[in-house]
Computed example of a mutant assay.
Amino acid sequence: MRLVTYDGGRVGYLADDRVVDLGGLVGGHGEPGAMRRLLARWTEVRDSLPPPSAANSVPLADVSLEAPVPDPSKIVAAPVNYRDHKSEMELKVDISDLAVFLKAPSSIIAHGGVVRLPYADRRVDQEGELAAVIGKQARNVSEAEALDHVVAYTGLLDITMRGGEDRSTRKSFDTFTPLGPWLVTTDEADAADAIDLDCTVGGEHRQSSNTRHLIWGVAKLVSYISTVMTLEVGDVIATGTPSGVGPLTAGDKVSVTLSSIGTLTVTVAGSDGTVSPTGTRPSGKD
């Protein structure tokens, strides 16, 4: 099932080229948002969704898609989780040494959004990734049961400013986490360790890999993270990027395509000329 957030926080599912509204299944307003409320009830309602009709659906072309989970309690990200990315960055460490880091939820934008470069004097790269979305609270779960806590997958771009600052700073600027275009539930997505990833920038093919090459797969990531912090419904796990990262410039169109999931596309806008107030690292390494 493809689940969408659209038109001011409404939620629905895609039936061919129509969006079927599911607002009646979530009810209420405020926190958490509608998608998180839907995911919390997903196992209860997934087999009894209303069929599409003229009364409860609209053409996909007529809606404005938003980030599928616009308000996760946290985004947990995996640094250096492909060996080829470790090699291209000339690093001696990977996720097994670094563990995970947090990105600010305020950095999320939707499919079709605009990534804004913050400074005129800093390099900013694209990092295409698979994102896993939590559907059931997870605390101290084993690797064997970890995927039972994942409800869906989606595309993610971990936009990254290079330099010596902490990862959570360099990756948390507003607009630095494009997410979408929708969620694909785990029963319809390819297996967690068998998802193809391709990323293009300005028509140039930059990244191509498969999640079988992850150093820590999705199950290990979820299990480990759950020993550090409780994962809540709607939390987003960015699983890491393969080799092929590179600089972004104003006007670029960036797309990441994941097999069985779809294509997330954003554009890039230049900075206003502001110079970074913090130090740079000329090598550009992560």
Rank of each mutant, 00 (worst) to 15 (best):
D193V: 11
H29E: 15
R123P: 00
R167P: 12
V124E: 07
V100K: 00
I225M: 13
R281E: 13
W182G: 00
G203R: 05
H213S: 08
E90F: 08
G135S: 07
L214H: 06
K74I: 02
V228Q: 13
P247S: 11
N210E: 00
G9A: 07
A55H: 10
V63H: 14
V63M: 09
N140W: 13
P68F: 03
V115T: 10
V151D: 10
T200Q: 02
V266A: 09
S107G: 13
P178K: 04
G112W: 05
I225Q: 14
V124D: 01
K92T: 12
R122F: 01
H29W: 00
T211L: 09
G270A: 11
I261T: 05
T227Y: 12
P52T: 08
V201I: 10
T239D: 00
D121T: 13
T43N: 14
P282Y: 00
V254Q: 12
Y153W: 01
P72A: 04
R46C: 14
K285Q: 13
D158P: 05
S64D: 14
G279I: 05
D235L: 05
E143Q: 14
D252V: 04
P51F: 06
H85F: 10
T278R: 15
S57A: 14
L91S: 15
A269K: 14
Q126H: 15
A40R: 09
A192I: 02
E31I: 04
G240A: 02
I75N: 09
S208W: 02
T265P: 09
L197A: 01
K74V: 00
R46L: 09
A15Q: 01
G202K: 06
D286I: 08
T211G: 07
V11P: 07
M1D: 06
H111L: 04
V26H: 01
T160C: 03
I109H: 08
G28D: 03
G273A: 05
S142F: 08
S226C: 03
D196H: 10
A67S: 13
I237G: 15
G8T: 00
G27D: 02
D47Y: 11
S53A: 09
L25A: 03
V254N: 06
E165R: 13
A192H: 14
A78H: 11
Y6Q: 11
